[in-house]
């Protein structure tokens, strides 16, 4: 089970308190009326499914209830950074890892 730090609650909590939200930074098309089928498919279904550092969403359903983003290594499952929704993805420098 993952131990996930919530950037709002500023505390590390067990994964059971959270709900996974899939890959982060997948933007809904700004003007849906002009989007073709291929682009809809890309938005709805296609994901990077990265083996490495993945930016993903979590929601602290049993805590503050808020969505936030997380950088996690999908090979080691180590969480490298968490940041609030709307914030830019942090650069992972030498000191960025927890």
């Amino acid at each position: 089970m993952l131990l996930i730090p919530c950037p709002y609650c500023r505390t590390e909590r067990p994964e059971l308190e959270f709900r996974y939200g899939g890959e982060a930074h997948v933007a809904r098309p700004a003007n849906p009326g002009v989007v073709n089928d291929a682009d809809w498919a890309e938005f709805l279904y296609f994901r990077s499914n990265l083996k490495g550092v993945l930016a993903e969403r979590w929601r602290h359903v049993s805590g503050c209830g808020r969505f936030f983003n997380c950088l996690r290594d999908t090979v080691s499952d180590r969480i490298l950074a968490v940041y609030k929704a709307g914030e830019p993805r942090p650069e992972l420098g030498a000191g960025a890892a927890r």
């Binding site: 089970m1 890959e23 990265l50 999908t74 080691s76």
Partner: peptide
């Protein structure tokens, strides 16, 4: 598990 992972290890829960 709910999340993407290549770890070949699942959560105990």
């Amino acid at each position: 598990d709910s999340y993407i992972s290549y770890s070949q290890t699942g959560g105990l829960h």
